[in-house]
Design a protein around this nucleic acid. Structure first.
Lengths: 153, 153
DNA sequence: CGCTGACTTCGAGCTTAGTCGAAGTTGCCG
DNA sequence: CGGCAACTTCGACTAAGCTCGAAGTCAGCG
């Protein structure tokens, strides 16, 4: 209110976080971040937004969807700025996610190794063909993967 | 039924492969599979298409895009039906792909473990924030990739 | 005051891997 | 020959995660 000196414009946040303004507005739209408005309707962000954005980008890197990230963020306390412990709690869950994913990939690889030997790739008998369970999330229909980082602009 | 007894309609291929006709047409559109046409313009597939489709689906499960699969398929011989060895050659490349991916995930996990401890998640210093290299491909980064056409500045 | 650049909203577009529906044609069985 | 299932093409639609452009507004400097 009185002193907005301690807040950041969207451009400043973009510069400091490396996340384009378009993406920041998109995140706000999706409820991942919030902002105040000036009298002139411009966004002003608290500095703590930077850590939040760092969390979001890291979580994306882990492979979570914005939806999932959004849910994780919702468990943060609303009555005070998140502490280190809060962030640590959230990110420790990523570990399990990662472990599971590594596991699934390893199983896939082991099956594949067998398949290369037998040269099967048969629709009926190949183990690779019948692994819908685990890999469904990471297999076909996977998000178009792309080095979206920087670079593009 | 004419002398095309040894070929399959799209419906038969769909049934045997478990891949919907819509997807099969889509694959043909993308050049992943090919077919002959009857006098009445209907598709007829050689039986060898089944193995090719099996390859495609397996490759997708591994996590390759249709584009990548298409490139792999292009290295198959055109002058004769692919042999077991041909398929084995291609699928052995998946192993390396998988190994690399597992590796990257493990590195990410290890970094994360450190980060949880330090509670950093800082934009500047956190290792998680600066892993654009490998993981960019596997995170659900933005498929908002730019059309190669314009050269976005 | 007036310029400029950073900001605002909104809607359209992009990619991947398809799916679905409409409208029309073929193939095959009795 | 009649009829119906299976085929044909084509365009629209989905979901995620943005980007871009248009048209207009605001902030701050000289």
């Amino acid at each position: 209110m009185s002193t907005l000196a301690n807040t950041l414009t969207i451009g400043q946040v973009a510069e400091r976080s490396g996340v384009p303004t378009t993406a920041l507005r998109f995140y706000e739209d999706r409820g991942l971040i919030t902002s105040q408005r000036t009298a002139g309707n411009q966004r002003r962000f608290a500095r703590s937004i930077l850590r939040r954005i760092a969390f979001i980008r890291s979580a994306q890197r882990i492979g979570l969807s914005l939806e999932e990230i959004s849910q994780a963020l919702a468990t943060l306390p609303h009555d005070h700025a998140p502490t280190k412990a809060d962030w640590a709690r959230l990110s420790s869950q990523w570990r399990q996610e990662l472990d599971a994913r590594i596991d699934a990939l390893q199983r896939l690889r082991d099956n594949l190794t067998g398949c290369i030997g037998c040269g099967c790739l048969s629709l009926k008998s190949c183990a690779l063909q019948n692994q819908d369970d685990d890999m469904a999330r990471f297999g076909p229909g996977a998000p178009g993967l792309k080095p979206a980082t920087e670079g593009g602009r």
